[in-house]
């Protein structure tokens, strides 16, 4: 029963993930933390952080959520549920896409959806911030976030992975 539930939640998230993983983070948190009660706020942040530490897409974090809910089978079901529906949609659409090559609606969809995706990504940022910048260390955490933002937004080509790792090391020193 739990496996079916996992499959339902993550395949819903899969087809709602317009704009990518960051855009669907608020809905993922709302479903897994608030509705289902599978995780606490801080566990959601920890699992997102684990996704940041691995190569490939950060959204592989869904594997850890599935593992916590229902072990190895849960990990597999969450992975398949989150990735397979979107992949099938991508293959089917890509095969018929050329038929719409000249449709002016294609650009209308692109232009119209762009600000929505930005709004959803900002909402995703807020969803993580609400779990990551809280509690007695919130000022230190806010300073971490601000330094990383300034370095990436105003600095020259710094690999974000280095800043993420630095966050982990500084966390070990300052947030224990």
């Amino acid at each position: 029963m739990k496996l079916l539930h996992l499959l339902g939640v993550f395949s819903l998230l899969s087809i709602l993930a317009i704009g990518g993983g960051t855009a669907v983070l608020p809905e993922m948190k709302s479903l897994t933390v608030e509705h289902e009660g599978w995780l606490s706020d801080s566990q959601f942040r920890d699992i997102y952080a684990i996704g940041q530490l691995a190569p490939g897409p950060n959204m592989l974090m869904v594997i850890v959520i599935g593992y916590r809910v229902a072990g190895f089978l849960g990990a597999f079901v969450a992975f398949a549920g989150f990735f397979v529906p979107a992949c099938i949609i991508a293959i089917v659409t890509s095969r018929i896409w050329d038929h719409f090559a000249d449709s002016p609606w294609r650009l209308a969809i692109q232009r119209g959806m762009a600000p929505i995706v930005v709004g959803l990504m900002l909402a995703g940022t807020i969803a993580i911030a609400r779990t990551a910048i809280v509690g007695r260390d919130s000022q230190i955490c806010l300073a971490f976030a601000a330094v990383v933002f300034i370095a990436l937004y105003f600095g020259k080509k710094i690999n974000p992975a280095l800043l993420i790792l630095a966050g982990g090391v500084l966390g070990l020193v300052l947030l224990r």
């Binding site: 960051t22 942040r45 920890d46 997102y48 952080a49 684990i50 940041q52 530490l53 600000p115 995706v117 930005v118 990504m121 900002l122 995703g124 940022t125 993580i128 911030a129 779990t131 990551a132 910048i133 260390d137 230190i140 955490c141 806010l142 971490f144 976030a145 601000a146 330094v147 990383v148 933002f149 300034i150 370095a151 990436l152 937004y153 974000p160 800043l163 993420i164 630095a166 966050g167 982990g168 090391v169 500084l170 966390g171 070990l172 300052l174 947030l175 224990r176």
Partner: peptide, 22 residues
Amino acid sequence: AVLKGVGAASVGLLLAVTLQIG
């Protein structure tokens, strides 16, 4: 503590990427 630090740093990363795209 490590995951808390990574989580905080991620917020800065997410905001930077979002504003660069947006």
